[in-house]
Design a protein around this nucleic acid. Structure first.
Lengths: 205, 205
DNA sequence: TTCACGCTGTTATTAATATAACAGCGTGAA
DNA sequence: TTCACGCTGTTATATTAATAACAGCGTGAA
């Protein structure tokens, strides 16, 4: 059974929407309702949900709590997955803020920076280590996902260190295209390109 | 002639790569070289470049300076386009850092926040205004793109104010799905979903 | 001079993705 | 009891995007 990136993106979005509804004590939802919120079509929603093997009822639609669980079973690791943030600048700190305490199956286990002022300090509850300690800390804590928030000039080098330390996936916010072995999963979230894109399409409308 | 979102994303990426090469005094490049750096195929590169009407030579490949110009003619506004950042927290400041002085056709003209400590102060060279002044400042400065860096709880409301003020496109970093009229272009860059996605695919590899 | 080479530009093919159509089913009203 | 309704799950179609194939061309070596 093959699942595409877009599939996963939508499923994760559905889950977030559903969690919001659950906290408002909504119990069930129809595909067309979820589609409207997620900005897609009912067919797409049904297909996505079908792809993870969950079934709703033709009367009540989907049970929100069970659907959240099903998406979790499909997308989450069995045990908590550990994440590191590299670069304790504004962006790194913003990520910790947004992140901490949100998803219980993901945990930010360490921050890395090369500023002596930050090393060994605890930032928003997470300890900051020097880049020299990277391999040791990553392996000891069994971290396999890294979020790269360093300046463009440092990104490639840091990414290589991360891979050497055993990282499996990188979320790259640095405005540079990384050149890495193909067995590493890289998701680029270049902020400058994103602004340029929005600037372009905001004129087309 | 229709151009897709992925088309534009790749073209903007090519431009950034090419600008890097230009600063190293490289003059020409072949489609297969650019493809390797941009992590795509030579055919894709040629098609993308064809789609903006630029032509290379079969001997020297593409002239880097002219190709950069052609991409700019296609993607950039004629006059400088003005952008605002809403939310002067860590993320907002990170964006200003990454951004300022990079793309001469895009200019951050204002920041908005509701923290009295920040209002009327200049942050990294950009003046911060209160949300109450939003409509006035946006219209006076002719801003048509907004980057949303506010907490999830405030995002929908702020987005509506932005639209009321005349914004055409929104780059949304808040971890929430906005519900907005369809004539507004919205690009979602949800950081939590991005981490979840990378966590998932890092296990699949 | 001529011929083989490697590149671009373009067309053709394939694959991926989204959209639409429809069968099956339980419910509730008539 | 029966029939129409509205939903899901699934299959079929259409659309879109990526990949491959190839024609044309200028160059440089033989």
């Amino acid at each position: 059974m093959k699942i595409s990136e877009k599939n996963i993106e939508r499923l994760l979005l559905y889950r977030r929407i559903l969690c919001g509804l659950r906290s408002e004590n909504v119990e069930n939802i129809y595909s067309h309702q979820l589609a409207r919120i997620a900005d897609t079509t009912p067919e797409q929603v049904r297909r996505d949900i079908m792809s993870i093997g969950y079934s709703g009822s033709s009367v009540k639609g989907y049970n929100i709590i069970r659907l959240i669980e099903s998406i979790g079973e499909f997308t989450d690791a069995r045990e908590t997955q550990r994440v590191t943030i590299v670069g304790a600048g504004n962006l790194g700190r913003a990520l910790i803020d947004y992140f901490q305490g949100r998803r219980r199956k993901l945990f930010i286990a360490a921050i890395f920076d090369n500023d002596p002022q930050k090393i060994d300090r605890v930032i928003h509850g997470v300890r900051c280590y020097s880049v020299e300690q990277m391999k040791e800390v990553i392996q000891k804590n069994n971290i396999d996902v890294a979020i790269l928030c360093v300046p463009a000039a440092a990104a490639q080098q840091v990414a290589e260190l991360l891979i050497e330390a055993g990282i499996k996936g990188i979320l790259n916010y640095a405005p540079v295209k990384l050149s890495l072995p193909s067995h590493i999963y890289v998701e680029n979230r270049d902020m400058l390109l994103a602004v340029e894109k929005v600037a372009f399409f905001s004129r087309q409308h």
